[in-house]
Design a protein around this nucleic acid. Sequence first.
RNA 1: GUGAGCGUGGCCAAGUGGCAAGGCGCCAGGUUGUGGCCCUGGAGAUCGGGGGUUCGAAUCCCCUCGCUCACCCCA
Length: 416
Amino acid sequence: MRLQAPRGTSDQLPDDQTYWDLVRGKAAQVASTFGYRRIETPMFESADLFERGVGSTTDIVEKETYTFEDRGGDMLTLRAEATAPVCRAYLQHGMHSLAQPVRMFYVCPVFRYERPQSGRYRQHTQFGIEVIGEADASIDCEVIEVGWRYLEAVGLSGLTLVINSIGDAECRPAYVELLKAHYSPHREEICEDCARRIDRNALRLLDCKNAQCQSFIEDAPASADNLCADCESHWEDLRRYLEETGIEYQIDHRLVRGLDYYTRTVFEISPPEEGRMVTIVGGGRYDGLIEQLGGRPTPGIGYGMGLERVIQNIQRQEVPTPADDRARVMVVHRGDAAKTAGVRIASQLRRDGIAATLAPPRGMRAQMRYAASSGATHAVIIGDDELAKDVATLRDLGASAQSEVPLAELASALLT
RNA sequence: GUGAGCGUGGCCAAGUGGCAAGGCGCCAGGUUGUGGCCCUGGAGAUCGGGGGUUCGAAUCCCCUCGCUCACCCCA
């Protein structure tokens, strides 16, 4: 095989589109039900945006971006995540002067240079939402609910919602010190990565997967137990509101997230896979991000959802996809005059709003085969007999029944 | 970045040193103008690529590329 799609990318073939239509259509539908409006930002941004927004020491920025210099000498980065670009757009277009909060959603490709594996690609598609300009916990609850209702809407079940609060600029520093103090005496007993994390990114100590570190994680102080008064009441509010939605949640003190900008609420939604649970949705509050990007202090919260993972789970759970029961017609013809008439009839059917295709110029048997394998619901058969009478033979391929229909009545016969 | 498994027509796949099976799909037929089932025929292969061993390599050895899975990280 000489030419193929670049590593970690894939083609979304015609046969795959049933899923993509479902997954994209429901995204727009559910998001707009909650009052979110679509935003689309460029596929690439100034490299600077992701460094400042996502955090220059995160893995994403450190080793996973597609960064390049364009012909004019600017350093650009393919969209490595969508929150920072949306915040950039919020600032650039003065959305702070709109009624707050501003609710937006997007479905867009995201690029990260990673080693591909199941559910992880170098180009993947995210359905995400962002609410900017309101810090109240009811918004946190709403954002979580959008993600949850969406996954319900596409037909997934058995999902798990996990939440946590990691505090804010007020209380997190003290908590991080507490964590470091918990770990420092054990530097020799934990894994190498964790030893490094103590100084570099202490929060990440909590999601280490190594066996030797598990007992330290168990005994570690929890961020949610060490919140300042404001964060504490925000955390309580969130849980109270969540109860009102009827969505079940678990609190996981080990849930921290990989992007630097998160504050207070963080959450994930995962499918019911035994063994490894690959997160479908990950999100959280980012009250410091807008300011980090040069705006006035403005709260925000959102999530990102991997649509390839959603589709993977739809397939695993064998969720039925909606069938398209509209008529699709194959115009089958015999003889030159009939072929010419077929061109005319197919054209007219389309103008009448019916999907119609002219069968390829082969024997009738082959044309009928083509009709069947193309998924056509009906064959409109034209030959000299029909031409003479100004009718067509309309064959219902599902029912294997046919009758002659005057050409003028074809469309109405197909629309009933 | 680390580790493991795997690369044979479009897809699935047999073949483990001696003429590259088979199935699906595709194309054409099975006497008058009709799909799905059945039957017949046909097209389609640098056996991922390069090098080596050998009289002879899809098969053994080396290198390389790719795919998949796991770690890491993340959606």
